[in-house]
């Protein structure tokens, strides 16, 4: 399993994580999916729909955001292939809460933002049986 992403898009994701710090930021990854690898070609960011107090450790993209992302993907002739979000001052591993809410098949790109600086991103996919996340390689081109 592999997620290919350009340096430009990854830097954009990191910049969003830094701008939103200490709150979480989230958005969709659009692109093309193959059997094992996928290529991100575009990102879409939406406002975190959580109440103010919980934005430091939670994000929410509404069904309307999902619909907009699917329409945009259709317009561009690609698919919604995953979600990116930041973990401010927290490791970039999926949490129990991430797992409970995760969709299968999607790539979940998580960026650790420490003291306002995006440090590293890792990408994960939920296993078919929903019991665990498996890490996928990020290939930056």
């Amino acid at each position: 399993m592999k997620l290919e992403i350009t340096k430009y898009l990854l830097e954009k994701i990191h910049a969003h994580g830094e701008e939103s710090y200490p709150e979480e930021v989230a958005g969709f990854l659009l692109g093309r999916a193959g059997a094992t690898s996928r290529l991100a070609t575009e990102i879409l960011t939406f406002a975190n729909a959580r109440e103010d107090a919980s934005r430091r450790n939670r994000y929410l993209l509404t069904p309307q955001d999902m619909l907009r992302a699917e329409s945009k993907a259709e317009e561009l002739g690609v698919d919604v292939i995953g979600v990116f979000h930041s973990h401010p001052d927290h490791p970039n591993r999926p949490s129990e809460f991430d797992m409970e809410w995760a969709m299968p098949w999607f790539s979940y790109l998580i960026t650790c933002v420490e003291e306002g600086r995006a440090v590293e991103s890792r990408s994960w996919r939920l296993g078919d049986d929903r019991s665990m996340f498996e890490e996928e390689e990020i290939q930056v081109s």
Binding site: F28, P63, L67, H90, D98, A102
Partner: peptide, 10 residues
């Protein structure tokens, strides 16, 4: 069927 997408760090 439209999922809400949510998560967070703990």
């Amino acid at each position: 069927i439209i999922p809400s997408i949510a998560g967070g760090n703990h």
